[in-house]
Simulated scan of single mutants.
Amino acid sequence: MFISVVIPTYNRLPILLKCLKALEVQRVSSQIQGYEIVVVDDGSSDGTYSWLEKNCELFPHVVLIKQNHGGPGLGRNNGVQQSRGDVIIFIDSDLVVTETFIESHITSLRKAWRRRGDKLCFTYGAVINTANFDSPISEPHKLTDLSWAYFATGNVAIEKTILEESGLFDPAFKLYGWEDLELGERLRQMGVELIKCPNAVGYHWHPAFSINQIPSLKQVERERAKMAIIFYRKHPTLRVRFIIQFTLFHRILWESLTLGGLINDVTIRPLLKFLIRINRPGLAMQVLRVPLNLVGVREIFREATLNGLH
């Protein structure tokens, strides 16, 4: 069995190098004939492609692909289409994995295939969030690392023919968010089972929260809202409305918790600065999530009105 690890990347060269170094030292058994690391540069402007091209001897497993900036979904599609693997593993370019990462995914997949009698399943590995750039894998597992998402492509493995049968990722998702969960809805409709694989551990690095990140975080919420409407148009179900928070319940919830928007990133800024000052940036981010959720929900309802949805 040959494995392809597909990684779309955009302007993340420093952490991408840690990601690739971890993948180059994988310990695999005889059940795996070999593996490749398919890196799809999504039009980066930080020199990612040229650096990897010039230093290709450092990463013998890497297959490098370049595309114009079109988003991670398009990048994953290109990676899959040019891959040689029987199994596709998707990870993000800011994920640093353990030495048994690939082996753990494949062991769990093969066990599920035997149990089911078919290959209609995928494995979902553990994702541990960390702000420790120097030593990402030293981060302990936290309650906030738990996820209930179905087919979140930060750390999943699936048989290639099943993925191709699903139709791959919809390139209409050009901005941030939802392209993987939308594919997940199609996989769910095919009867594809989610198999938890906690031994396939990846450490998701992102810089510690700081005040100057607030504008970009609000922009992400606006982009997610636009993509959420595309998601809902394709799957106009109550389930998807709850996933994207396009319900009256979510509108009332976040309006109430923020007192109609009185609690916002400006009014809570002194609290956020205090939490950062006492070295609690993670808690500051959790506090900020409340008004950010309101931004996102309001934007979804605005986009729905513009698109004639109710």
Rank of each mutant, 00 (worst) to 15 (best):
F2C: 04
I3K: 07
Y10D: 01
L17H: 03
L17Y: 03
C19V: 02
L20Y: 04
L20N: 02
L23D: 12
S30D: 15
S30R: 13
I32F: 05
V38L: 09
S45P: 00
E53N: 03
E53S: 10
H61D: 04
H61Y: 06
K66I: 08
N77Q: 10
S83E: 11
F90E: 07
S104P: 01
K111D: 15
W113C: 01
R115L: 04
G117W: 09
G117N: 12
I128N: 02
T130K: 06
E139W: 07
E139K: 12
P140K: 09
H141A: 07
L143M: 09
D145E: 06
L146S: 12
W148C: 08
W148D: 14
A149L: 11
A149N: 10
Y150T: 06
A157C: 09
K160C: 02
K174I: 13
K174P: 07
L175I: 02
Y176N: 07
G177K: 06
E182S: 15
E182K: 13
L183G: 05
E185L: 08
P198K: 10
V201F: 00
Y203N: 06
H204I: 11
W205N: 06
S210W: 00
Q219G: 02
Q219T: 04
R222G: 04
R224E: 12
I229F: 02
I230N: 02
K234C: 03
K234E: 07
H235G: 01
F246D: 15
F246K: 11
W254S: 05
E255S: 15
L257E: 07
L262T: 02
D265E: 13
I268R: 08
P270T: 09
K273H: 08
R277W: 15
N279R: 15
N279H: 15
G282M: 03
M285V: 00
L288N: 13
L288W: 10
V290R: 02
V295D: 14
G296Y: 11
R298D: 12
R298H: 11
E299K: 14
A304Q: 05
T305D: 12
T305L: 08
T305M: 05
N307P: 01
